[in-house]
């Protein structure tokens, strides 16, 4: 067994890694000191005050009560500090940068499927450029999975009924583990893969090699295949709302509430159109539950996103996301 095969520390390969490790090291020092301190105190006292004659009594002495207050107040203050530190880190992990590169992931017993906006698809391998924020939008086709990048110090559960997204920014090129961290059945431990972090130029080269067209363009084809375009026309004459410029905006619903047109809203509107009907339209759209696979759903989403950005009014600048990478 070589020493190199025996890591005590996972490589730091993302922008989070240093921050997470810093908190980890701080906690090791803090809790290590406390634990060793308690161990030594117990053994020290137990030796010093060991019972010598069998009928020996304890000394009639009680430590001052102020100790009690001390060890309530001091840990509480330390814990509040830890809470702030941990939450700060969590916010950082939860806030996806606007210029992130979109990638779509589907978890399925027992493989990871990835799609790039340009249309490349891969299984159990994910190619990403270095030093660029990557946003992964993901859903599960069956049970709950969890997409885990140990060297990036991040993971997130993948759910069967909604989109969730996570992000990271790799800081070094190389090959790093992908694990499924939420138990998902027989081959849970085989639901693993590699993330290949590449130089941007290499990544562009990789993207150029073979594709069925961008996800958005595949989504557009599906949009016609499912005949969405018969109602969702490009002008206000259609029976359904215009989708251009929709993504990310607030939509007023028939009950006068508003909802943000995000990934999950679009997903729900396809699978369960009556749940949130746009004001001024009739609830006539049929459901597509069971007809659109998770992969196709993501393509449709990519399409709706792309036309949302194309005709976006001046209020929101178009993020450089998906289309920026089109070769």
């Amino acid at each position: 067994m070589m020493v190199a095969d025996f890591p005590l520390w996972p490589e730091q390969a993302s922008t989070f890694a240093k921050d997470v490790d810093a908190l980890y090291i701080f906690l090791i020092i803090l809790t290590g000191t406390v634990s060793v301190g308690i161990f030594l105190t117990i053994f020290g006292l137990a030796i010093k005050y060991r019972r010598r004659p069998d009928n020996e009594l304890a000394q009639d002495y009680e430590p001052p009560k102020i100790l009690e207050v001390t060890w309530i107040v001091v840990p509480t203050i330390i814990f509040m500090g830890l809470f702030v530190w941990g939450s700060w880190l969590y916010f950082h992990l939860a806030r996806v940068p606007d210029d992130a590169l979109d990638i779509y992931a589907t978890g399925k017993q027992w493989m990871w499927k990835f799609q790039h906006p340009t249309g490349q698809r891969e299984i159990n391998t994910l190619h990403v450029p270095v030093n660029r924020p990557i946003k992964i939008t993901m859903a599960s086709e069956d049970v709950i999975h969890s997409l885990f990048f140990p060297y990036f110090r991040t993971k997130m559960d993948v759910l069967p009924n909604r989109y969730r997204s996570m992000w990271f920014q790799a800081t070094k090129t190389g090959r790093f583990h992908i694990f499924c961290a939420e138990y998902c059945g027989t081959l849970h431990s085989g639901m693993i893969g590699w993330v290949e972090v590449m130089e941007p130029t290499e990544y562009q080269k990789w993207l150029a090699g073979g594709s069925e067209g961008s996800m958005a363009s595949q989504g557009e084809q599906l949009f016609q295949k499912y005949a969405c375009n018969t109602c969702h026309t490009n002008d206000a004459t259609g029976r359904g709302p215009v989708l251009a410029g929709l993504y990310g905006k607030d939509v007023t619903l028939s009950n006068d509430t508003t909802v943000k047109a995000d990934d999950n809203y679009i997903r729900e509107s396809i699978l369960n159109p009556q749940a949130k009907v746009v004001k001024g339209f009739n609830p006539i759209m049929p459901t597509f539950q069971g007809q659109v696979s998770e992969d196709d759903m993501m393509k449709l989403l990519a399409y709706v996103k792309s036309i949302g950005q194309n005709t976006a009014p001046a209020t929101t600048p178009a993020p450089a996301g998906a289309k920026g990478t089109n070769p």
Partner: peptide, 27 residues
């Protein structure tokens, strides 16, 4: 017991620290 419970307890602090829990949970 006191020693081991202490270690069990303080490692709970790692898991309660949100940003760190993301990495160590389910491991």
């Amino acid at each position: 017991f006191i020693g081991l419970f202490t270690i069990g307890g303080v490692t709970g602090l790692f898991l309660a620290s949100l940003g760190l829990d993301i990495h160590v949970t389910d491991t």
